[in-house]
Write a protein that binds this DNA or RNA. Structure first.
Length: 192
DNA sequence: GGAACGATCTGC
DNA sequence: CAGATCGTTCCC
C-alpha cells in the first residue's frame, strides 16, 4: 500500500533508509531513489539546527512535503520533510535511477560538455534536481496529496542498505547518516 | 552594511 | 584541486 503522510512522521535517520526504492515523480519525469541523507535539529550540520529561518520553513512544516534549497550559487537540492509538524527534520535526496521522462532528463542535463550517461543523470543531489526539474518554485510542495510532484511506492522496500558518513559537511562529518543501495552504479561519489 | 561560507559539480 | 556564483546567515 502506498505511503501515507503519517508514515513520514518519524525521525530522519529512521526514514532515510526506508525511502530507498521509492520513486519521486515531477511532471512526466520519475526516478527511483537509491541514496539519501538524514538531517535533524540536534545535528549541527543541519539547516534546522539553529532554528526556523525564512529558508528552512518547509523543514519545520508537516511531513511529506519538499524542502528545496539553493547552494553554492548555482545548485538546488531537494529533501523529503519528515518528523511531526514543528520539528525540523528532513531527508536529502542524493541519487536516483531515471525511470520515466528520461529524454527530458537528458535535455535538462544537456548543459554539460559531455552528455552524461543515463546512470549519472540523477547522480548527486544537485544533478538529481536538475534532471527532474526541481527548483525553488517547488519548495514546500506536498509530496503525498500533490499531483505534479509526488512520492510513491512503499517505505522500506529495501531491507539491505549501507550507511556511511555524509558528504560535503564539516560538522558531525563522522555521523553515518548517508544511506545507499550497496554497489548500485547510480549512487553518487565518493562511493560509500 | 558587509563578509564568509555553503547538505555541489566539473574540468584541469 | 581550484573555480564558478549567489543566497543565507551572522557579525559589526
Amino acid at each position: 500500500m502506498a505511503a501515507q503522510r503519517s508514515d513520514l512522521e518519524g525521525t530522519a535517520p529512521d526514514l532515510a533508509p526506508l525511502l530507498l526504492g521509492m520513486s519521486l515523480a515531477v511532471g512526466g519525469r520519475a526516478a527511483r531513489i537509491v541514496e539519501t541523507e538524514a538531517y535533524t535539529e540536534a545535528d549541527p550540520a543541519s539547516h534546522s539546527h539553529r532554528g526556523r529561518t525564512r529558508r528552512n520553513v518547509a523543514m519545520f512544516g508537516p511531513p511529506g512535503h519538499l524542502y528545496v534549497y539553493f547552494t553554492y550559487g548555482m545548485h538546488w537540492c531537494a529533501n523529503v520533510v519528515c518528523g511531526p509538524e514543528g520539528v525540523g527534520e528532513a531527508v536529502l535526496l542524493r541519487a536516483a535511477v531515471p525511470m520515466l521522462g528520461v529524454d527530458e532528463m537528458r535535455s535538462a542535463r544537456a548543459g554539460a560538455r559531455k552528455a552524461p550517461a543515463d546512470r549519472q543523470l540523477c547522480r548527486g543531489p544537485a544533478n538529481l534536481c536538475r534532471a527532474l526539474g526541481i527548483d525553488g518554485a517547488l519548495d514546500g510542495t506536498d509530496l503525498i496529496a500533490g499531483t505534479f510532484v509526488r512520492l510513491s511506492g512503499d517505505l522500506g522496500g529495501y531491507s539491505v542498505y549501507r550507511s556511511s558518513p555524509r558528504v560535503g559537511i564539516r560538522l558531525a562529518a563522522q555521523t553515518p547518516w548517508r544511506y545507499s543501495i550497496p554497489d548500485d552504479p547510480h549512487v553518487s561519489a565518493p562511493r560509500p
